[in-house]
């Protein structure tokens, strides 16, 4: 099964990437031409840059906020409030991404809730169609991603914290450590592996993003929020350049490995 549904498509993609093919008719062997295009055509290179910008929102924000939330709710982990907070934060993981994307396009539209709130507090000079503005479309997509992934990170980190021996915190307090010191000396090092998982999952989500962008902006306006996953789709099904799409796919896969493997290595627990 694994061979049919995972390995075969991967190998076939590599094969297609060396051809010029429209998906139906005859194909011609073009060697590395498609790869050359990936690295020289701004239409294909630009989306890769955008994917890296998305890492800030998809990965950095959820992990940092998740850590903050997990650390501050540690003391009240058993209370009712904490379980409500956990449920609320995890909810975005349960909602289908397409539905979430549609809700966010309403919130971020020119007459949406975000702008209504800004109007109400006197920030009406800053209101705009967030997903239709060249300078804010990509960050707005990033905010949606951060919202989706924050719950996942918080839950993982909370689970990690609950496994830390309470005696460690007690000992630290006896030694006169404040909350900040506790966080740096106990919480953070003990969560190394959980943080590693969070960063890995969210970085992959950023680099391979498709659904959120497809629903909210379709890469617009003017390609300003185009990401590799969406560009692959356009190349294959709109431009009918299956070879170029496959080449971009292979490059994206290698890029993900290149970024994720060092993260795995750094966050691995050592003796």
């Amino acid at each position: 099964m694994y061979a049919i549904f995972v390995l075969r498509p991967m190998i076939v993609s590599v094969q297609y990437s060396f051809y010029k093919w429209n998906g139906i008719g005859a194909s011609t062997w073009v060697g590395f031409d498609n790869y050359l295009r990936v690295f020289t055509d701004p239409d294909l290179l630009g989306p890769i840059g955008n994917a890296f910008k998305l890492i800030v929102f998809f990965s950095f924000v959820p992990v940092v906020l998740g850590l903050a939330i997990a650390a501050t709710t540690r003391q009240i982990a058993e209370s009712r409030l904490a379980s409500v907070a956990r449920t609320v934060l995890f909810l975005p993981q349960v909602i289908p991404l397409v539905a979430a994307g549609i809700i966010w396009t309403w919130l971020l539209s020119s007459t949406g809730l975000v702008n209504q709130v800004m109007d109400a507090v006197g920030l009406n000079s800053l209101t705009r169609a967030w997903l239709g503005d060249f300078s804010t479309a990509l960050p707005a997509v990033g905010v949606i991603g951060a919202w989706v992934l924050l719950g996942l990170c918080t839950l993982l980190l909370l689970a990690g914290i609950s496994h830390i021996d309470p005696a460690l915190y007690e000992a630290a307090r006896l030694d006169g450590a404040g909350p900040w010191r506790e966080f740096l000396s106990i919480t953070l090092p003990s969560l190394r592996q959980e943080i590693g998982v969070c960063v890995t999952v969210t970085v992959i989500a950023a680099l391979a993003s498709f659904d959120i962008v497809y629903i909210s902006t379709q890469g617009g306006p003017g390609n300003s929020s185009m990401v590799p996953g969406l560009e692959i789709y356009y190349q294959a099904f709109t431009e009918r350049q299956v070879g170029a799409a496959s080449a971009l796919g292979v490059v994206l896969m290698l890029l993900v490995l290149l970024v994720v493997l060092p993260i795995q290595w750094v966050t691995k627990e050592r003796d």
């Binding site: 190998i11 076939v12 590599v14 094969q15 297609y16 060396f18 051809y19 093919w21 429209n22 998906g23 139906i24 008719g25 005859a26 194909s27 011609t28 062997w29 299956v242």
Partner: peptide
Amino acid sequence: LVGGTVISGCSAPGADP
């Protein structure tokens, strides 16, 4: 190696219409 073998074993994608 496996990938290379499979690729060279396959014919070009698509058919001349």
